[in-house]
Design a protein around this nucleic acid. Structure first.
Lengths: 201, 201
DNA sequence: GTCTATAAAGCGATAGAC
DNA sequence: GTCTATCGCTTTATAGAC
């Protein structure tokens, strides 16, 4: 923590951002187990030992990328709050946004239940704080939409929440895109529509 | 191919079945990348070299397990065909059956798009034949249900098919079960209902 | 902090005796 | 075919010079 060198701090921050962005894409592309640290450093263009000065393990590296995703999601929620939409409209908009993130290759797969990654994530305060904040905010919209009769009140709000999380990584999007028979916009429309029709009253 | 020893053949077949069953469970539990051959042989109680006399690679091992799942699914389809159900009823029944398989720890995760496993699977005739047969039979029911107005005719049948495949591995089931707040039967009901309400007209 | 070089461990696959 | 023992490679992580 020297007094002067802001340049250096900014440079290091930019490098960390580059690392996390690369990890984010690789996580979306191949998942945590298949992603290797060598690929990350090759992609960023640094030495492996340098990466380990910033992050102490592969798990922590992935956790940083997950935190980044949650941050961007929370930003999107804040943006949506400023728009003139009801609760259901906001939920649909965030689902659509998530699908677009997946198309852009920016949406990492959900960490599988028994991964070594999960242990790191649940122990990571930055990750858990953001996850809980996101759950709280989405949960409020869900309850609100249920109260307005726009979502089925018989479904537990947690089930609706988990369904939205799961659909953000829905493999159906990738398979449909790979078939090449329909436009991305058309596919996203179908998926958002059928998802919310299923959760609807 | 000696003439006499049927005992031995049966014994070997039983051992192969034990291996494949173990692989099936491990695939469901941790996925292909996280599963190790050492775990498999430890679970079955044989030496690693013995396993490699039956299967030439880890990928082929997983492929055999996937073939087993497809076979059991095709059997279930045959059973459902003998029942007095319309197309939608059959599709719902097979979805419910898939969820129950997942609860029993018998439903492996979908092979991720960029896995080394995928290359083996698409080159495996036994796997591809069964996958196509399954797709054809389910596809026929889907088109039929759309014609009867029980499924949304605006959705491409392939999207409906892929959605059913994806929901068979839906992570929402596992998360909801882990919360412990609801019975398995109740959770499955909610998931089947919301899935088909989403695909409905 | 960044690099080159390497340690340490895990993993898929095989050799060779029985 | 099954076993023990081991190979050969990949991968995570670190040592040590600059």
């Amino acid at each position: 923590m020297s007094a002067r060198p802001r340049f250096r701090e900014q440079f290091l921050q930019a490098r960390e951002d580059a690392i996390v962005a690369s990890v984010n894409r690789l996580l979306a592309e191949k998942g945590f187990e298949a992603m290797t640290v060598d690929e990350v450093v090759a992609d960023v263009g640094i030495a492996k030992a340098s990466l380990y000065k910033h992050f102490t393990s592969k798990e922590e590296l992935a956790a940083a990328a997950m935190v980044r995703v949650l941050d961007r999601t929370l930003e999107e929620l804040a943006r949506l709050r400023s728009l003139d939409l009801d609760a259901l409209g906001r939920l649909k908009a965030v689902a659509r946004w998530a699908y677009e993130q997946q198309i852009a290759g920016e949406m990492p797969a959900l960490p599988s239940q028994n991964s070594t990654l999960r242990a790191t994530l649940v122990a990571d305060k930055a990750y858990m704080d953001r996850l809980m904040q996101l759950s709280d905010e989405l949960g409020a919209w869900i309850v609100q939409a249920q109260g307005q009769g726009h979502l089925d009140p018989a479904l537990p709000p947690e089930l609706v929440l988990y369904t939205l999380f799961a659909r953000a990584c829905d493999p159906v999007l990738g398979v449909m895109r790979a078939s090449g028979a329909h436009s991305d916009a058309q596919i996203v429309d179908w998926l958002v529509t059928s998802c919310f029709r299923g959760l609807g009253a």
